[in-house]
Amino acid sequence: MGPAPTVHAESVDFVMLYIVAISVVLLIGITVTMIYFVFKYNRKKGHEPVDIHGNVLLEVVWIVIPTLLVLSMFYFGYTSFRELRDKPDNPFIVKVTARMWQFTFEYANGKKTDTLYVPLNAPVDLEMKSVDVNHCLYIPAFRIKEDIIYGQTNHLYFNAKQTGDYDIACAEYCGLNHSAMYTKVKVLLDNDFTKWYGGNWQPVKNGSASN
């Protein structure tokens, strides 16, 4: 899939890798032990079975170690999630309107598009509303999504560090053409974006540039 287009995508991939790695070890451990027992203690070998009712130490071990493991997974998942809330004070705001079965993007200068255009390396905050049912704006490459609930405004924040076109999908079932509710986010270089935007778009990278 190439290099990750956002820092957050990298951290999500790390959390994924962390959990999957531990899971694979556990899965292989369980499966191999089970298969080993089936051969080793096979009835054909004629062992007398031994009744072992339990072992306190083992029970403690397989409560405590998994507890520590899942707490670490929780921690990484939570800290990575917090990145989505680390919004600077003046992000580039785009208003998103979702309807069956289309997204519309409206920029501060009144420009409206079906495709989302954003500048590179700029914090972007999507202010999302629905006019009919629930939708969900999902950018797989950025590893983020947020539901768009009729009657409330939800936010989605990202900061792309790689130019390119990335898919946007609707991820909350919304009826007939749900699966056709695709569009793109185009991440443009500063100059290209300014040209497309037709003027100053308040770059916020270095704090007070907009003044």
Partner: peptide, 10 residues
């Protein structure tokens, strides 16, 4: 994977 917040959002 789904219980963890960051990965679940994705």
């Amino acid at each position: 994977v789904l219980g963890s917040l960051a990965t679940d959002i994705h």
